[in-house]
Design a protein around this nucleic acid. Sequence first.
DNA 1: TTTTATGCAAAACATTTGCAAACCG
DNA 2: CGGTTTGCAAATGTTTTGCATAAAA
Lengths: 143, 143
Amino acid sequence: METSRSESADIKQHLRALGLRPTRQRVAIARLLLRGGHRHLSADDVLAEARRAEIPVAQTTIYNILRQFADVGLVREVLVESGRAWFDTRTSPHVHVYDEVTGAIQDLDHDPHALGLPENLNLPADVEVKDVSVVVRVSYKSK
Amino acid sequence: METSRSESADIKQHLRALGLRPTRQRVAIARLLLRGGHRHLSADDVLAEARRAEIPVAQTTIYNILRQFADVGLVREVLVESGRAWFDTRTSPHVHVYDEVTGAIQDLDHDPHALGLPENLNLPADVEVKDVSVVVRVSYKSK
DNA sequence: TTTTATGCAAAACATTTGCAAACCG
DNA sequence: CGGTTTGCAAATGTTTTGCATAAAA
């Protein structure tokens, strides 16, 4: 895989714009995460992908970077089961469908903000909505 | 605190109806959880309350019971942060507002099912919606 | 050079497991 | 009794921390 000079430059600029120093690891992980296709990855998945891509990075750093990326909205944290966090490379509004049997997470093209929710919240002026997450938990009807 | 005979009987019957043997621990924990007021409790909170109420029960059992209770719908698992699960003693439909700063979870009287969601799912016939969870993540505007 | 990030190893947690003893029906 | 459930201790898995080294500005 070839790393184009301009792609790196773009990502560096992107990270800077988000207030993050474009370190070697952050740039490499960002490229890895943002390359086409929406995916749901655990921290360990990202570490594995990084290793595969021969990106020199420690597990601790993966955790740091994923938290930072989630903070600035580069990825979205998805909580569907206690004990492990998933990170969604799709940041545009959508709903998650979680299969309790297989553990699979699927995206559903539906904007949670279009649900008339935030308006109904009656929130104080200084309160800011950071995210609205919708998870539809499904399983299979027995017989 | 006095334990009325009939209250115990009610709970036992309730548990049986849900397919759970009314063991000493399950009955005691159920009574503790279902006594008035909607709350969001961690497994550890429940253990602490049990100790306070002098209910003889082990941590392992709390975990078992909470999972079972969630399975049969006696409580609802709430996932708002990775690494720890909360259990909501309110089972009627509502939305959660999670304060990222204080960690507080609040209920919002709004039925997620009234959002036109399940109908839009286009799910296969054998797929069953077990739960729809909505979490509005908020924090405070700076300055 | 000054600040910030990385990475290692060790902690810290929440949750689960294996298995013997106790309990429920 | 016979299948479940409990509870202990140990294990597991994920995420965090402390701190020295390295990289960024």
